[in-house]
Design a protein around this nucleic acid. Structure first.
Length: 327
DNA sequence: AACGGCCGCCGTTGCCATAT
DNA sequence: ATATGGCAACGGCGGCCGTT
């Protein structure tokens, strides 16, 4: 069963939201593409794992663990009575060569060393196990979920530590035979106790240079006709409720201004007063946790992101979206 | 200088009319 | 029935000002 769900990370969410409202410099555009590709790989891995089934084990997706003063990121941890399996997911594509600790694609060396990362990730957990005098196994694999990935190496140790797309289904199927009882519960509890938010990303966008307003969820256009209940995109004709637009904007605001409080005043400025402040306030009170602070009342989005709020807010939508993208 | 009452500011809420 | 938004009332807080 899934203990922690995977969401697009802070950095990916930040650049996605930023791209909507500014022109990204080439360097950031490239960074965004790398992040998107990585996320697609994790998504593919999750998809196959969901298909093969994980009901008998505990699965942690995309977590950061603070162990002994430093924080390590884990793409996926599988916990059973046997112990912990670490999966480091790399969505590489193309022909990669590995030779004595170095990775190459075509003639250039790859900056990261997946095997070293896996060893570090496992090593951190070994340290944690030592701290609690635990008695369980910790193993790991590098998973390459991209069908276009080819690996060339004579290194036996590496081959023992990788799972290719062709073998992914079979690899994940083995977890069906594992069992999570009392021991697994304890390990899962131990892991849960060390989870921290991603400490490595704390960028904050420049409010003043961002394009203000609301944009179409289908084509991204900012030219919207303001009707009652709906905003209609003037370029593609998609019609979305004001509620949908506001949720999307709250989600973007959260991704863009990590260190900034969300206040109503700031928010209506962010959406360029496209929806009446009265309605905005109602939405904030539905989708956010409010903290009273005298003149400085602020709101915290209850959901991970737009999709999370859109799908998991259990409200009946009297007025529907007519978004061409999803039809 | 310290205290306290008054007032205005600003954000929130209640209520209502209206559109769908 | 429900979403929206206008309007007015409400309430917390800080500043102002007069009194002690």
């Amino acid at each position: 069963m899934i203990v922690t769900e995977r969401f697009p990370g802070k950095e990916l969410a930040y650049y996605r939201a930023l791209k909507r409202r500014t022109a990204l410099p080439a360097k950031e555009e490239k960074n965004l593409a790398v992040l998107e590709k990585g996320y697609r790989g994790e998504y593919e891995y999750d998809r196959v794992f969901d298909e093969t089934g994980h009901s008998s084990v505990f699965v942690f997706r995309d977590i950061y663990l603070r162990i002994g003063g430093s924080v390590a990121q884990y793409d996926c941890l599988v916990v059973s009575d046997d112990g912990i399996v670490v999966n480091e997911i790399k969505n590489y594509s193309g022909l990669y060569c590995y030779d004595r600790g170095k990775w190459y694609i075509r003639d250039s060396q790859v900056s990261e060393d997946a095997l070293a990362q896996l060893r570090r990730a496992v090593g951190k957990l070994v340290k944690l196990r030592y701290q609690v005098r635990g008695q369980f196994d910790i193993t790991g694999k590098i998973v390459f979920p991209n069908i276009e990935f080819r690996l060339q190496t004579n290194d036996e140790e590496l081959w023992e530590n990788v799972v290719l797309r062709s073998g992914l289904r079979n690899y994940l199927l083995q977890f069906k035979n594992l069992y999570a009882g009392r021991v697994a519960e304890e390990i899962a509890e131990l892991i849960r106790g060390h989870i921290v938010p991603n400490p490595y990303f704390d960028k904050c966008a420049d409010f003043d240079v961002l394009r203000k307003g609301l944009y179409c969820g289908s084509c991204g256009g900012f030219e919207l006709e303001n009707r009652k209940y709906h905003l209609v995109c003037e370029s593609c004709g998609s019609k979305e409720t004001k509620e949908t637009h506001i949720i999307r904007a709250i989600s973007d605001y959260k991704a863009l201004f990590l260190n900034e409080k969300l206040t109503k005043k700031r928010f209506v400025e962010f959406i360029d007063y496209k929806v009446s402040p009265r309605t905005v306030l109602r939405m904030l009170n539905i989708y956010c946790e409010r903290t009273w602070n005298g003149a400085f009342t602020y709101y915290d989005f209850k959901y991970q992101n737009f999709e999370d709020a859109y799908v998991n807010s259990n409200r009946l939508w009297r007025y529907k979206d007519y978004n061409l993208k999803y039809e």
